[in-house]
Design a protein around this nucleic acid. Structure first.
Lengths: 234, 234
DNA sequence: CGCCCTGTTGATACGATTCAAATATCGTGG
DNA sequence: CCACGATATTTGAATCGTATCAACAGGGCG
């Protein structure tokens, strides 16, 4: 892993009322007047690839919405083993644990350049007491995170290396047009799927040789989605 | 799998106010007067080992609290693969998804004889609007389920077969005195840990031969917890 | 009693890990 | 802009672990 100094950059106070992804974020259900209560500003930041957003055990005072990019949440075991337990992408909310716990249970890291909104936990708490739409939205976010975790177990932690890689490729392609996806390091790919870096690399290479995927640009892949799907459904 | 007729049995209308595990259940924070709003009774039922509590895709109208026993939540993949994604034990709440979704995403099955309280989802919804203690408790339950899922990924889906089995034994022993635990079928053990039945069986047999565990009664194990912990922390 | 289901064990094959080395890529400073 | 060193990726060969297929033992139940 590179150990360069990575500095996030402030990109401005968020204009929640006119947010470009407002219909799919936490504050989707808020009414005009609710925004007036948003005294403490929500800001937007951009994190470069590799930047740590927060570390496991740090004081949890902020929730994050992903505006663009990709974030990994890593969990550590006492013996030092680590495993990526979730990925958050556009419109996903992460760091929800801040609502309940003192400290973050995971380490959050940007896998690519990533734009985030930072929501102070006390702002969200205060708003959610008064506002039942936000209450429901929060509940829905917990549910979404839980579904994602369940899916992680069945799709990315079960079956052969090849099946896992294929399921991940298709999952990533969902974000775009279903055929195109951007990948990250083989090391992360391994930590994500519970495989070694070498196995991850070999599996990708073999899929390429067999024509299921191609790599027009570095880390940008084109997937033969129908045939990939056939690989895992038979 | 046995295909006998398994019938749950009604054991009475729950007396939530005087619940023996009240301090750790969903309604822990309710005050005396709140219970008066519990017009629709909460009932208690007992399910025999192997009984299906609900099936994936069924209409979700009830939340469940485990009073005793053990429940597995199984998720299915389109290709027929199935994987146990969570276990619920004493004081755990499951079926939370009913608050958000139409249908249950998992199949819930009793692994042993299990006592449950059934909470109609509309009762919980109605109470949670008025009652902020219940609102917080619900949030905490979502959080607990999510932490459990994360732990599942790192502990029960990562590492060698032996490590996974050992982690599960220690997890099960947590429930009792830390040394004693009750197990279930090797088939379920496999589905839980992402292993085949045979590997699960072999691993258990080897742990027994090496003196880490003993089986005084069928499916009741005594664990040498300190040495087991040493196995996974080195 | 005999059947079926579960658990155990054995032999073998396959797949993933490990260790090692070669190659490609990236970032930096000359 | 190129050369260099550091880092990431790919590939190879040997080993180890798990899956697979098959056979068998024991227990519960009709």
């Amino acid at each position: 892993m590179k150990r360069v100094a990575l500095q996030e950059a402030w990109t401005g106070v968020a204009d929640c009322k006119n947010c470009t992804i407002r219909e799919s974020v936490l504050f989707a259900g808020l009414k005009e007047e609710d925004f007036d209560e948003l005294h403490r500003p929500i800001d937007q930041w951009v994190y470069p690839a590799g930047a740590e957003i927060y570390g496991a055990g740090q004081k949890a005072s902020t929730l994050f919405t992903v505006r663009s990019g990709l974030v990994k949440l890593t969990q550590f075991l006492p013996d030092g083993t680590q495993r990526i337990v979730r990925l958050s992408r556009r419109t996903d909310l992460f760091g929800l644990e801040a609502l309940i716990e003192q400290d973050y249970p995971h380490t959050a890291t940007a896998l690519r350049e990533t734009e985030l909104c930072r929501l102070p936990v006390d702002v969200v708490r205060a708003l959610s007491h008064a506002n039942s739409a936000l209450y429901h939205e929060l509940m829905a976010r917990w549910h979404k995170a839980l579904s994602a975790a369940d899916r992680w177990i069945t799709e990315f932690s079960t079956g052969s290396a090849r099946e896992r890689v294929v399921r991940l490729l298709l999952w990533l392609a969902e974000m775009e047009d279903g055929e195109r996806c951007e990948l990250f390091s083989r090391e992360d790919l391994g930590a994500l799927l519970g495989l070694t870096t070498e196995t991850a690399s070999r599996t990708m290479a073999e899929l390429k040789r067999q024509g299921f995927i191609s790599e027009p640009r570095a880390n940008h892949f084109l997937c033969d989605a129908p045939n990939l799907r056939r690989l895992i459904n038979s």
